[in-house]
Structures are given as structure tokens and as C-alpha cells.
Amino acid sequence: MNEPICTFFQDACNRLDDKTEKDAAMQEASAIRFDPQLRLAFTTILIYCRPADPLAFWYKHNLELCRDIMVRDKVTELNPQTENQVLMELQDKK
């Protein structure tokens, strides 16, 4: 039996109970969300689902979270400056 579709992303996050589900949610979100929306999804998962290892969760998804800034700045590889810019933006969302 399938779970009903959630109306809000926060409701979906509340259903996530393990690391695999949180990672799957971020992968799905990165396929359909862009730029600030993806970072908002990441922040929502951090706040409401509380991954056991937030730093590992960041490193697993930081490339997707930084991609729009990399494109804007015409950078081909992830660098600390871009990561810091995204981390400051994530901090502002909390």
C-alpha cells in the first residue's frame, strides 16, 4: 500500500526516518528544484529531520547545492568560496 502524497514538503520530511530516505529526498529534489528552492529543501530536511551526521549530509549534496552559483561564476569545480557562499545562504534560511 502506497503512502498518500504529502501536500507540503515539511510533511514529507516528517515521514523520513532513515538516512537513505533523506538522501533520496535530496536527490529527488535536486532533479526538480533549482537554486534557492533546493537549498530551502536541504534546510528543511536539516531542521525537521535532523540527519544523524549533518556534515556528511552536506558533503553528499554540496555539489548540487552549489551548482547554480558555479554556473553563474563560470567555475567548473567546486571551491571553498562557493561552498561558503552557499553555507551563508543556508544559515540565513534557518
Rank of each mutant, 00 (worst) to 15 (best):
M1Q: 14
M1W: 13
M1D: 14
M1L: 15
N2V: 12
P4I: 02
P4F: 01
I5F: 14
T7Q: 14
T7F: 13
D11A: 11
C13S: 03
C13V: 13
N14H: 14
R15S: 08
L16N: 01
D18M: 08
E21M: 07
E21T: 05
K22D: 01
K22T: 02
K22E: 04
K22N: 02
K22V: 02
A24H: 08
A25D: 02
A25C: 11
A25G: 04
M26Y: 01
Q27M: 12
E28P: 03
E28D: 10
A31K: 14
R33E: 15
F34L: 11
F34G: 09
F34A: 13
D35N: 14
P36N: 12
P36S: 13
L38V: 03
R39C: 02
L40Y: 06
L40V: 06
A41L: 04
F42Y: 15
L46H: 11
L46I: 15
L46F: 10
L46G: 06
I47T: 15
Y48N: 13
R50T: 15
A52D: 13
D53M: 08
P54K: 10
L55M: 09
F57V: 02
F57K: 02
W58S: 00
W58K: 00
W58Y: 03
W58M: 00
W58A: 00
Y59S: 09
K60P: 00
H61K: 07
L63V: 06
L63C: 03
L63D: 02
L63S: 02
E64A: 15
E64T: 07
C66S: 04
C66E: 00
D68R: 05
D68E: 07
D68F: 06
I69T: 06
I69E: 06
I69V: 11
M70S: 03
V71M: 11
V71K: 11
K74I: 04
V75F: 01
V75K: 14
V75Y: 03
T76I: 10
T76A: 08
E77T: 13
L78G: 00
Q81L: 09
Q81C: 06
Q81E: 13
T82W: 00
E83I: 04
N84M: 08
Q85R: 08
Q85L: 09
V86A: 00
L87F: 04
M88A: 13
L90P: 01
Q91E: 15
Q91A: 13
Q91C: 11
D92R: 12
K93V: 04
K94Y: 11
K94G: 08
